[in-house]
């Protein structure tokens, strides 16, 4: 069997980290991807970490569990559907829809450690203090925080930023592999899709909250 095209052992770890879709796609990626989306939502609900948009992550507002799960699914489906449409337009030939949906579901897995970083007690304390300032704009801003809390919060923000960039890389790789797109055509179409999906996911969340009011 042909092994020349396969990456070496040293390279294999980086492929698994940044392009796991070389090895896993379709239903094999869809199943764990969906489980991880639900897992992220459950973890997010513990510390009120919201993924309110394809690329968004915010902390603070309390909400029922169903909203956290809905956020995960809306984000995943918004981008996957738009990438399928783009793939059909840009590629012009057939590809498996399940590959796009599977890879995009699995591409969201870095949000699991991001949610874990978000629920740290130090982050909760800093977020509560920041929320107080935002909710009382007429009062002078006073932050009653421990220095350690601020350090943990800063580190968590860095981790979250890195995981979001990592997720974008995985999303792009998933799209490129599923639709066999390369170069500028793949990059430009992906960026356009990401921007459209960001807006679509926001609209989707707005619509679902309108349909099922939280109070």
């Amino acid at each position: 069997m042909n092994t020349e095209a396969l990456p070496g052992r040293t390279n294999r770890l980086s492929v698994w980290m940044f392009n796991p879709f070389t090895y896993i796609a379709g239903w094999q990626a869809l199943m764990p991807g969906v489980i991880l989306i639900i897992g992220t939502a459950l973890l997010g609900s513990v510390g009120n970490v919201h993924f309110d948009g394809v690329l968004d992550m915010h902390m603070g507002a309390e909400a029922p569990l169903w909203l956290f799960i809905a956020e995960g699914f809306i984000n995943w489906l918004s981008l996957a559907i738009i990438l399928c449409i783009a793939g059909l337009i840009v590629r012009g030939t057939a590809f498996r829809i399940v590959d796009v949906f599977g890879t995009q579901a699995l591409a969201r897995w870095p949000m699991l450690p991001a949610a874990a970083a978000g629920i740290l007690p130090a982050n909760q304390r800093v977020t509560e203090e920041l929320m107080k300032i935002v909710q009382n704009p007429n009062q002078p801003p006073v932050l009653a925080l421990e220095p350690l809390d601020v350090i943990v919060f800063g580190l968590a923000m860095i981790i979250i930023l890195v995981t979001i960039v990592w997720m974008i890389v995985l999303m792009y790789r998933g799209y490129a592999v599923s639709c066999n797109l390369k170069g500028a055509k793949a990059i430009v179409s992906f960026i356009i899709c990401l921007l459209i999906a960001e807006a679509t996911s926001k609209l989707g969340l707005y619509a679902i909250i309108k349909l099922f009011p939280l109070n």
Partner: peptide, 25 residues
């Protein structure tokens, strides 16, 4: 290898331990 797999991309993917779209690409 593709001929030996009777032109089955799924079989090729399983044998090469790669994903279906990678083999198809």
């Amino acid at each position: 290898d593709f001929l030996k797999c009777s032109g089955s991309l799924k079989e090729m993917a399983a044998l090469m331990k790669l994903s279906y779209p990678t083999v198809r690409n």
